[in-house]
């Protein structure tokens, strides 16, 4: 659906800018571009970041799978492997704790005047990404293929007929976690 719109390159660049505007506006209003909010989450004192992420996941999941059921959208699945997701994301996590911002929130934090987010975040992340491009051929051969599990989703690996039983179960678990967080006053 909407293939003409998707193929209109200029309009898509404009849409990207517009969607980014909304994303940045929301991240800032949620206070998740603040060093204190992110470190509060990583120190398990302030659960704002997790609340934003889990709410976005539930909302997005229900809508995206409903639209997919109607054939309006296709999923954007990425293949994974133990050698890709575990070491890469652990290194990311270590950096996340040191910097106190992730890539998107670095941009958002610089936009409210955080200069450590410019130097460490925006410039540092680009240096790291550039270094990765230099070592990529060696990693690709040796490590990235280890434990390859493809682009499987939770629906693919569970023995269920109706995907919505998985979707509603995940939604129920997430809502339960959010209720528990509120009850605990976190």
């Amino acid at each position: 659906m909407l293939t003409n719109l998707h193929n209109n390159k200029r309009l898509q660049l404009l849409l990207g800018l517009l969607f980014g505007f909304c994303f940045g506006f929301l991240l800032q209003k949620g206070r998740v571009c603040d060093y204190e909010t992110i470190m509060g989450q990583l120190l398990l004192q302030d659960f704002t970041v997790l609340k934003v992420m889990l709410t976005a996941i539930v909302t997005g999941m229900v809508g995206v799978y409903a639209m997919r059921g109607k054939g309006w959208v296709k999923l954007h699945k990425q293949a994974g492997s133990l050698g890709t997701n575990i070491p890469g994301s652990l290194i990311f996590g270590i950096g996340f704790g040191m910097l106190g911002y992730c890539p998107g929130t670095s941009v958002g934090a610089f936009a409210h005047g955080a200069l450590d987010a410019l130097v460490g975040g925006i410039i540092g992340i680009m240096i790291g990404a550039g270094l990765y491009a230099a070592v990529y051929p060696k990693l690709k051969e040796r490590i990235l293929k280890i434990g390859d599990f493809g682009d499987k989703t939770l629906i693919d690996v569970l023995p269920v007929r109706n995907p919505w039983s998985v979707i509603f179960s995940v939604a129920a678990v997430i809502v339960l976690i959010l209720i528990v967080l509120e009850k605990m006053g976190l």
Binding site: P87, G93, F96, L99, G124, G128, L131
Partner: peptide
């Protein structure tokens, strides 16, 4: 931290 994030 930023370099680790970009690389990771």
């Amino acid at each position: 931290g930023g370099i680790c994030i970009g690389f990771g």
